[in-house]
Nucleic acid binder design. Structure first.
Length: 570
DNA sequence: AGCACGCCGACT
DNA sequence: GTCGGCGTGCTC
């Protein structure tokens, strides 16, 4: 009697990969089939990854007669293997993240043989009309088209314009299951998904990747840490019938492109350095900015003030003694909201103090105004003609034509990023903002520090971007940071002594040709979480996945290994 | 006897 | 990474 090896959708430690079951001689089960298998006291959904006549677990193997629920094809088994290897997790753990929670009652789904397209494309281009381009390609594509985008709200927006279905983490389990199985079994369809559905690339004919430059394609918090962009590339390597079309606005640092591949973003743009600006009764806005704002209102144009400081005030800061309120859990500086203080690192909220606990002073308002406070001041003066938003709100907006966007501080639009990548993130966000204003035939008015503003205009042009990226790459190379040098991140829980032990193991496992930096402690951790340390491993040369896996797998039991980290010190 | 808790090894 | 079997020890 033959055997099948399956990967159950169950979290297992690294090294526990497959389980064997005995099947009848004539059973019609193939690699890539989704089946139900008895596992412990219950039954679990599983992916068939091999069929054979022998098994090392022949004495334990239970006999089953599996009825395949659905066929995901042999390439799904290969993608699973590759992803597990890349993320240093077991295949069952990765598969569990694909399946999430399957419904209790599984309807049998008719499988359809699916011819793959004969001339796969592999295109990457950059444009300021990204969404429009994606929609055009999706409308003309045939077969199964998967659109992968970094954010839920953008997935919803694209899907509604295409009348396509969406898949993201906030979908209920049953609805999610129905959505992806429908995609997997139909001959011609469009599905818009966030990274949660990136594995469906191995079932698609065409993948459209929105914003390849956006780090939010990566799941950087939970295990397994995977990157939707990597999954798409791996799927294309495994399935040579897959077309991949990447549509961005700014080429990522390290991509090889000439200026002609990069769009220059053109729009009416005013840059006003803070130096010498007059004060107004709308903090954050200069007299000249207010003049422009009122002119736009006069012309019946919508106005958006982008003030990237969340909450009511940026910090709770005493004007008299300089005391700043910090989070009781994790010591991060707190942001004031109307009645509470919120920590944007760990999420804890605390009551706002009435007086300074350090000196008793009552003026805790010394800091920069936040978006909420500015919004209420603006509303008093201009009613609903002007909208004040912070960054997350801006990303959710669809700009109406001829909008005037006033940005109060250019230096804040890159988000919270550590130093090494600050400029890179800022340039990418800046070009995304300018492109969306340009697409709406709008106008952009920008305030900020003079040093940044002097470069900002050039970043919108192809030549300016090329030279900014060249400078960035030179800087990275001198400190041996990506993309100039591969840098693998190891996360070790516990005190420094734990990390030192891993450091010793790494030294003996890797030899003297590798550079190891650290341990560095993770700076901000809440009091409820144990400390965590970071090591950086720099290989002597670019190694392929298999070599890396063999070298580093022994370390996977004592550290989380991240082959392409997007943050290096957190 | 009945039950809560914690440890440890197995899961096919 | 979980789950469940089993030993321990406490309560009725």
């Amino acid at each position: 009697m033959p055997f099948i090896s399956v990967v159950p959708a169950v979290r297992t430690p690294i090294g526990v990969d497959c389980f064997d079951y005995r099947i009848p001689e004539n059973a019609s089960v193939n690699v890539g089939d989704l089946v139900l298998v008895p596992f412990r006291k219950r039954s679990t959904i599983a992916l068939v990854v091999a069929r054979s006549h022998t098994s090392a677990f022949a004495d334990k193997a239970v006999e089953i007669d599996p009825a395949p629920i659905l066929s995901l094809g042999a390439s799904s088994a290969e993608l699973l293997q590759a992803t597990a290897q890349h993320t240093f997790s077991s295949r069952p753990t990765v598969f569990a993240s694909w399946m999430r929670t399957a419904p209790r009652r599984l309807p049998s789904i008719p499988s359809s043989s699916h011819p793959s397209s004969s001339t796969p494309q592999n295109l990457t281009f950059f444009t300021s009309s990204r969404i429009q381009t994606i929609i055009q390609h999706a409308s003309s594509a045939t077969g199964r088209t998967l659109i992968l985008t970094p954010w839920q709200h953008r997935a919803e927006a694209i899907a509604s314009r295409l009348e396509a279905s969406v898949l993201h983490a906030d979908l209920a389990d049953g609805a999610a299951w129905k959505t992806w199985t429908t995609f997997a079994t139909s001959m011609s369809t469009v599905l818009v998904t966030t990274r949660i559905g990136s594995w469906l690339a191995c079932l698609a004919d065409t993948v459209l990747l929105d914003e390849p430059e956006n780090d939010d394609h990566k799941q950087d918090e939970l295990a397994p840490r995977f990157d939707g962009r990597w999954i798409v590339d791996a799927s294309a390597r495994i399935r040579n019938g897959l077309s991949v079309i990447r549509v961005g606005t700014t080429p990522p640092l390290g991509s090889v492109l000439g200026p002609s591949d990069i769009p220059s973003i053109e729009l009416p743009l005013t840059l006003e350095p803070w130096q010498g600006r007059g004060r107004t009764d709308l903090p954050g806005l200069s007299p000249a900015a207010i003049e422009q704002l009122e002119a736009a209102i006069e012309a019946s144009h919508p106005v958006i003030v982008l003030h990237p400081v969340r909450g009511d005030r940026s910090r709770i800061h005493c004007r008299d003694c300089g005391w700043t309120m910090t989070c009781p859990s994790c010591s991060f500086t707190l942001t004031a909201e109307t009645t509470t203080a919120r920590c944007h690192r760990c999420g804890r909220t605390t009551d706002l103090p009435i007086a300074c606990p350090s000196c008793g002073g009552s003026d805790l308002n010394a800091s920069r105004i936040g978006k909420d406070r500015l919004a209420s001041l603006v509303a008093m003066r201009y009613g609903t003609k002007v909208t004040v938003v912070d960054l997350p709100e801006l990303h959710r907006l669809r700009l109406t034509p001829h909008t005037l966007v006033i940005l109060t501080d250019l230096s804040l639009i890159g988000g919270y990023v550590e130093d090494i990548r600050r400029k890179e993130r800022l340039i990418i966000s800046w070009r995304r903002l300018a492109a969306s204003v340009s697409q709406a035939n709008g106008e952009l008015y920008v305030l900020g520090p003079e040093t940044l503003l002097s470069e900002a205009r050039s970043w919108l042009s192809a030549e300016g971007l090329v030279s900014a990226w060249k400078q960035e790459e030179t800087d990275r190379a001198s400190f041996r940071y990506p993309p100039a040098h591969q840098r693998i991140k190891l996360l070790i829980d516990g005190e420094e002594s734990n990390a030192l032990a891993v450091l010793e193991h790494a030294k003996t496992a890797l030899g003297p040709s590798w550079i190891i930096e650290g341990p560095f402690p993770v700076a901000y951790r809440s009091n409820t979480r144990i400390p965590r340390q970071i090591l950086h491993l720099l290989p002597p040369a670019q190694l392929d996945e298999k070599e890396l896996f063999l070298l580093l797998e022994p370390l996977a039991k004592e550290a989380i290994i991240d082959l392409d980290p997007i943050a290096f010190f957190s």
